[in-house]
């Protein structure tokens, strides 16, 4: 039975204004059931105000073997971080 139920990835927005965040996955036969299952499995403790689900097969992930050429080059390029500016005191929330 389990084999017949596709896997879905679940994203929850914890409150208005924040973005949806990946929280886990679950099994469901279609998108309606996936949303309901997500509600029952992932929002029982007041975790969210909005749910997105997407069937796992539609997610394309980067290959772990590519991590050197993908991510290594960014590690020594500190000048890409916007940390070399003097921020005036009046500017809040930086």
């Amino acid at each position: 039975m389990k084999k017949d139920w596709p896997l879905w990835e679940v994203f929850i927005r914890s409150k208005s204004g924040l973005s949806h965040k990946h929280v886990g996955s679950l099994h469901a036969t279609d998108e309606v059931m996936a949303i309901e299952n997500a509600r029952d499995v992932y929002t029982r403790r007041n975790e969210g105000v909005s749910i997105w689900v997407v069937e796992s097969k539609y997610i394309t992930a980067s290959d772990p073997d590519d991590s050197d050429p993908f991510f290594e080059p960014a590690k020594d390029k500190v000048y890409r971080h916007p940390t070399f500016y003097d921020v005036p005191d009046e500017i809040k929330h930086m």
């Binding site: 139920w5 029952d40 499995v41």
Partner: peptide
């Protein structure tokens, strides 16, 4: 329950 997800739905 037949599935973990249903187990949680029913107990909710």
């Amino acid at each position: 329950a037949p599935e973990l997800e249903i187990d949680m739905a029913l107990t909710n």
